[in-house]
Amino acid sequence: MTSELHIQERSIVVPGQVLATGLDYLPSKGTYRFNETIRANRLGLAQVDGKVLKTIPLAGRYLPQKGDLVVGRISDVLMSGWRVDLNTMYDAVLSLAEASNEYIKKGEDLTRYFAIEDYLVCKVTQVTSQNLVDVSVRGPGLRKLTGGMVFEVSSSKVPRIIGKRGSMVTMIKKGTDCDVMVGQNGVVWVSGEPKMQRLAFDTIKMIEEHSHHAGLTQQVKEFLEEVTGREVE
């Protein structure tokens, strides 16, 4: 039996749609084999990598994964750590050992370090099979966030907002003179001059809405140059 591909690269596929027939193709993330066909199991953009087929999700809540850089909110102070809301269905815990380079004494008031409603950039260090999550703020670039504004985007659009090797987010930073932190969980923190914060917000929201289009980086560059009236590298 000959194998045949039924979709084009980057075309939108829906659950159950046949991506390929034949045994030569292999299913990867977001696809599965059903008899002689490979089908999508989520709404997304099809990606063909040689013989491997996968889908890039277009929607969906964030699922924590080890190593992800995320923006979290302290939702509770525990006996020996903090509970962190990562904008997902599973709560994360920040333990004392992962909270600071200083030694934190027993019985100390933990709100001196992080209080409820504080936002922080942290890294997911561990995820168990039951999706219990541990995070850490020890490491380069991990810190408490002060000032600025926080908003949410769909976590599946985050790779588009960051761009290849950070190209998109670097451009937004330069174009708006803002400090921008895009967490893998879809929480975005922007800090800068109020007008520029607004510009960064609008730009990111536009990218989110049209993430399935090609050539966004160039369009964003032209847009920021037009608005700010100066060249954006």
Binding site: G16, R42, L43, A59, R61
Partner: peptide
Amino acid sequence: LADAGITMKDM
């Protein structure tokens, strides 16, 4: 359900 990005093997 599909629009919410939930994994499902078919409609």
